[in-house]
Amino acid sequence: MSSATYVYAVVAADIDLPEGLTPVGGGEEVAVIDHGQLAAVVSDVPRDAPLGSREDLLAHERTVNTLAGSTTVLPMRFGGVVDDDRAVVDELLAAHQEYFAWALEQLDGCRQFVLTGRYDSDRLVAGIVEADPEIQQLGEAVRGKDPDATYYERIRLGEAIAGHVERIRSDDADLAVERLGPFAVATSVKEPAAEDGAVELALLVHRDRVGDFEQAVDALGDEWDERVRLRLIGPVAPYDFLPEPPEAEG
């Protein structure tokens, strides 16, 4: 056999696939394999072609995120390949039927969004310096001086500013959860990846509350003004909120 089956996600059966989905690995099309009340979203991939390029990763993300915009989805991690369509049914859908059905029910009608924020670094540091006399003194002590001669003072200055940034970041994350949490089914606070990152939240929002949620994001952006630049991404596949399998009784 020259091809295997790539699996993007598990959804409820009888789904109408969105148009324009790009398969991973240069396959011909994204398709659906039904089994009872479940379905797997799949495409063919060459057996002898390694996966892992940036294009493959983007194709996977675009497919699962597009699905998440129109239906409840259990996304698979990138790189999920099985032998053939029969294995999709036997090894995936039938073998985990009870869990998949339960997890889809838990996520029914919900969409994941990701909120990121980045500081205006110059404004942030200027505010920290203005509010802390000790940092002002350290700044004056090293300004215009030989870096080698003021090495330890510069370390103290950097540590003091970094400590303030961490406290501000923690307070901003708490405020974001306070403002947006009431509109979400669940929230997950993440560590910002960028050095100037202010906040990164994953939020699971029911479709009936998306409008109110987006208004709350706009209000938070207005409250923070230009101090924090917010970006709302989504809906995306709910990787951060996949239900854990219930513990077996007994």
Score class of each variant (00 low, 15 high):
Ser2Ala: 14
Tyr6Arg: 07
Ala9Arg: 00
Val10Asp: 06
Pro18Gln: 06
Leu21Asp: 01
Thr22Glu: 14
Gly27His: 07
Gly27Ser: 06
Asp34Arg: 03
Leu38Ser: 00
Val42Arg: 04
Val45Glu: 04
Val45Met: 08
Val45Thr: 03
Asp48Ala: 11
Ala49Leu: 15
Pro50Cys: 06
Ser53Glu: 13
Arg54Tyr: 10
Arg54Asp: 15
Glu55Lys: 15
Asp56Ser: 03
Asp56Gly: 01
Thr63Cys: 09
Asn65Pro: 00
Gly69Pro: 00
Pro75Val: 04
Phe78Glu: 02
Gly80Ala: 15
Asp83Val: 10
Arg86Leu: 14
Ala87Trp: 07
Val88Pro: 02
Glu91Lys: 11
Leu92Tyr: 06
Leu92Val: 14
Ala95Ser: 12
His96Tyr: 08
Glu98Met: 06
Trp102Pro: 01
Leu107Glu: 00
Leu115Trp: 01
Gly127His: 05
Pro133Trp: 05
Ile135Cys: 03
Ile135Glu: 04
Pro147Cys: 09
Thr150Arg: 10
Thr150Ser: 11
Arg156Thr: 10
Arg156Ile: 07
Ile161Thr: 01
Gly163Tyr: 03
His164Cys: 02
Glu166Gln: 11
Ile168Gln: 02
Ile168Arg: 09
Leu175Ser: 08
Val177Asp: 03
Leu180Met: 08
Thr187Val: 10
Thr187Asn: 09
Lys190Ser: 14
Pro192His: 01
Glu195Trp: 07
Val199Phe: 04
Leu201Asn: 01
Leu201His: 02
His206Gly: 06
Asp208Gln: 12
Phe213Leu: 12
Glu214Asp: 12
Gln215Ile: 14
Val217Cys: 01
Asp218Gln: 13
Ala219Val: 13
Gly221Ala: 11
Arg227Met: 14
Val236Glu: 08
Val236Ile: 13
Val236Thr: 10
Pro238Cys: 05
Pro243Met: 07
Pro246Gly: 11
Gly250Leu: 07
